[in-house]
C-alpha cells in the first residue's frame, strides 16, 4: 500500500541534524532547479541529493529508485505532450494521424528534457526532506512562522490522526479483502464506500472524544512541544557550502544557453 515516508525518516541517521540547514538545502535545490535554463544544473542537484539521501541517509537504493518512479507516469505523459507541441527547429520525426500531422522538433525535445530534469531535481529534493526529516521535527519550523495558531494546531493534530486512521483503514481493508470484498469492480466500490463511511464516523466520534479529553487536561488552544537545539557542525557547513557553490557555478555557466 502507500509508503509513508515518515516511517523511514524516523530511523534516518540524518534526523538529528539541524532542521534549518536541511530546509535551506531543499529550498536552494528546488529554487535553482526550477529557475535553471539548462538541464545540467537540475541533473547535478538530483545526483547530489540522491547521493546524500542514499549514502548519508542510509536509504536502500532499491527502495529509493522505486519511490522515484512513482511520479513517472504523470511526468512522462506530460513531457511527451510538451515534446510534440512545444518549440521550433528542425523536425526529428513525425507522423500523421487522421490527417493531423504530429512531429517532434529539436526545440520541443530540448524543452521536454529540461522539464523532465527539473521535475527529477525537485523530486529528489523533496525525497531528501521526506526521508530524513520526520514531520515532528518540522513543527518547530512551522511554529517559527507567523501563521495563526489554529492553523498550526490543526496541522499537528491532523498529523497525529493520519496514522490512527491509516491503521484503521488498513485493518478494515484487509478484513474486506479476505472476505472477497474487492473481487470485482462493483463490490470494490461498495466496500470502499463502507470503509470510508466507517472512517468518517470513527473520525467524528474521535474528534468529540479528544476535545473532551484535552479539555480535561486544561487544553487552551496551544500544544507545546519540547524542541532540541542542534547546532550546525563545521563539516556539514563546509559540505553544504561546497554543494551550493558547485551548483551555482553550473547554473551561472549554463544560463546563457537559454531556450526562452
Amino acid at each position: 500500500m502507500t509508503n509513508i515516508l515518515d516511517d523511514y525518516a524516523l530511523v534516518s541517521p540524518l534526523r538529528y541534524r539541524n532542521n534549518w540547514l536541511k530546509i535551506a538545502i531543499v529550498g536552494f535545490g528546488v529554487l535553482v532547479g526550477v529557475s535553471s535554463q539548462s538541464f545540467i544544473p537540475p541533473f547535478a542537484i538530483a545526483l547530489c541529493m540522491s547521493f546524500t539521501t542514499v549514502h548519508f541517509g542510509k536509504t536502500s537504493l532499491k527502495f529509493y529508485l522505486t519511490i522515484l518512479s512513482a511520479p513517472a507516469v504523470f511526468v512522462l505523459l506530460s513531457v511527451i505532450i510538451i515534446a510534440f507541441f512545444f518549440g521550433s527547429g528542425t523536425e526529428i520525426f513525425g507522423f500523421n494521424i487522421f490527417s493531423y500531422h504530429l512531429g517532434v522538433n529539436t526545440g520541443g525535445l530540448e524543452m521536454a528534457l529540461l522539464v523532465f530534469s527539473r521535475t527529477l531535481s525537485g523530486m529528489s529534493c523533496l525525497f531528501f526532506l521526506a526521508l530524513t526529516t520526520p514531520m515532528v521535527e518540522l513543527f518547530s519550523v512551522l511554529k517559527a512562522t507567523k501563521l495563526p495558531d489554529s492553523f498550526i494546531e490543526i496541522s499537528m493534530m491532523m498529523y497525529r490522526y493520519i496514522f490512527v486512521f491509516l491503521e484503521v483503514a488498513w485493518g478494515i481493508k484487509y478484513a474486506q479483502t479476505v472476505r472477497l470484498g474487492y473481487k470485482d469492480w462493483r463490490t470494490s466500490l461498495t466496500s470502499l464506500a463502507m470503509l470510508s463511511t466507517t472512517l468518517f464516523i470513527r473520525s467524528w466520534e474521535q474528534g468529540e472524544k479528544i476535545f473532551i479529553s484535552m479539555s480535561a487536561r486544561c487544553y487552551d488552544g496551544k500544544l507545546i512541544f519540547f524542541e532540541e537545539k542542534r547546532p550546525i557542525r563545521a563539516n556539514e557547513l563546509v559540505l553544504t557550502c561546497t554543494y551550493f557553490a558547485v551548483v551555482l557555478a553550473l547554473w551561472y555557466l549554463t544560463r546563457i544557453n537559454s531556450i526562452f
Binding site: 490543526i154 493534530m157 490522526y161 490512527v164 486512521f165 467524528w204 474528534g207 468529540e208 476535545f211 484535552m214
Partner: peptide, 13 residues
C-alpha cells in the same frame, strides 16, 4: 478544532 483536524486526516487517508 479537533473535529476539523480529524476531518483533514480523513481527507488525507
Amino acid at each position: 478544532l479537533p473535529l476539523l483536524a480529524v476531518a483533514g486526516a480523513f481527507i488525507f487517508v
